[in-house]
Amino acid sequence: MAQSEVTAQHAIAHHPALAHHFENMEQQREASTLGMWVFLITEIMFFGGLFLAYSIYRSWYPQVFAEASHHLDILLGGINTVVLITSSLTMALAVYHSQVGNRGKLVLFLILTMLLGLTFLGIKVIEYSHKFHDGLIPGIHFHYEGPHPQQAQIFFWLYFAMTGLHALHMIIGVSILAFLIYFAWRGRYSPEYHSPVEISGLYWHFVDIVWIFLFPLLYLVGFHVKG
């Protein structure tokens, strides 16, 4: 009896994914989750600087921001919002299936999440190319027809900086998903060890939250003033 308990403990202590400096899997999992949350805090502050700039300039030039936002495509932005929220659902379900140990469903939902992420990026490329054709790229070639073109340019650099940084995070997220899919398919994750899926999920949801704010602030800000 005592002998079997010892071997059981031995088996836990030597889970292949347990790094040498942790006492047990629980401690390792706690550390990786906390680590991701702390990282997300730095992300909040990173985007925070841009949100601050947005707030200042929007409070200075509310009319211009409203007019300039008419050049953004609410339909495409709206579709992307739906796509991203759906991808958050599939990511949450992927984490669920990693927790209950359903490898097939885990891989399926990870692939769905990645596809939705790629769809988002594809639509973003279409939007960016429209802006390029309309001559709305600040600094490079900017031909804005409405009043106060310089202040409108501020709106557009904020638009490109914020959505561009967001898209960069999406690209990183999609790359992480590619790794997760590979390892999930190889059967590395189990109910005992699935921290990578879980903390990647946290990252993915965070990127979704950023978009939840970007959509109304950039696309809907001038919807009510018909241009």
């Binding site: 700039a53 200042i56 300039y57 600094g139 340019q153 650099w157």
Partner: peptide, 18 residues
């Protein structure tokens, strides 16, 4: 510095104090 779009340039509507 690279594209000069008035992020902190008062002549282009920006604010250096920001």
């Amino acid at each position: 510095r690279t594209v000069g779009i008035g992020i902190f340039d008062p002549r282009l509507g920006g604010d250096p104090v920001l």
